[in-house]
Write a protein that binds this DNA or RNA. Sequence first.
DNA 1: CGCGTTTGACCCGCGC
DNA 2: GCGCGGGTCAAACGCG
Length: 308
Amino acid sequence: MERNEVIKMEETIGSSLFSDHISDGYPFSGIFDIYEGEKSSLGFAELLGIQDYSPSLFDSPQAPSMAPSAPLPATTVKECSEVLNQPATPNSSSISSASSEAVNDEQTKPVDQEGEQQEKTKKQLKPKKTNQKRQREPRFAFMTKSEVDHLEDGYRWRKYGQKAVKNSPYPRSYYRCTTASCNVKKRVERSFTDRSIVVTTYEGQHSHPSPVMPRHSLAGVQPGSGFSAGCAAASFALPMARTLSYSQQLHQPSFINTSSPSNLASDGLILSPGLRRDIRFCTPGSAFLRDHGLLQDIVPSHMLKEEE
DNA sequence: CGCGTTTGACCCGCGC
DNA sequence: GCGCGGGTCAAACGCG
């Protein structure tokens, strides 16, 4: 992507926390936010030394059974966290990534409206050039070690496009949620550095429960949120059965103190220079503020930057 | 017939 | 302005 966007990622993308504490069979816990996850996260499996993790998050008693009809055909390497940085539970299985792209004034606009507007302008392709820039939904990317590209996540998707990816032998597929009035999209592509890894990027939030998700699995969803606030993670097929507060997350004991990315490397994780640029790790105590976990989604990046 | 996929064309934003 | 690359559209097609 372009320079501005990369910069924006550095400015706005924040919270990252890792746990090497393996509990409940989950090898990882934590979240990280990336911008343009499908690109930036490309090397995460490698940098984290992830090879293969057997405990699927979907197998957890805490995790909703997202795909009862079709068990996850792969090992989830990374999952995403919720838009508002409602993080994956510490017991959840992996590294998650989130990206909020449109950190601007429009951000406060309800997703549905925004989506519809976007849809309208799309449909009327002829009267082009609505002078406002195209708004993007917050994005979440996660990586999955999988043989199949399109992973079952409890929602129904319709493929609407496929494009060859530059510098990659593998195409990128574009999916849209088939539910009417739901504008969630996702992109699926295979990592060209490790063909066994599928990078899935979600954009937007489902405005409806999962068609195949058992009802109880939505227990963690905030009532009255219209499936927007608390639903994002669930929307993205995340184990949301137990929702912890952000501070709870941050005070997990074994988070790597990564106020500087180099600490990560010292923990045996290798960050490529490019990746270091893209990801900001944070200490538990200061993470929230410094990295604007929640704030970055609602506060313009230039405001957040002042804290630096 | 309904739904999902495929695929070429088109749109759009951005850098040069 | 032009070209490139990412993203989307929509007609054609396949399948159950």
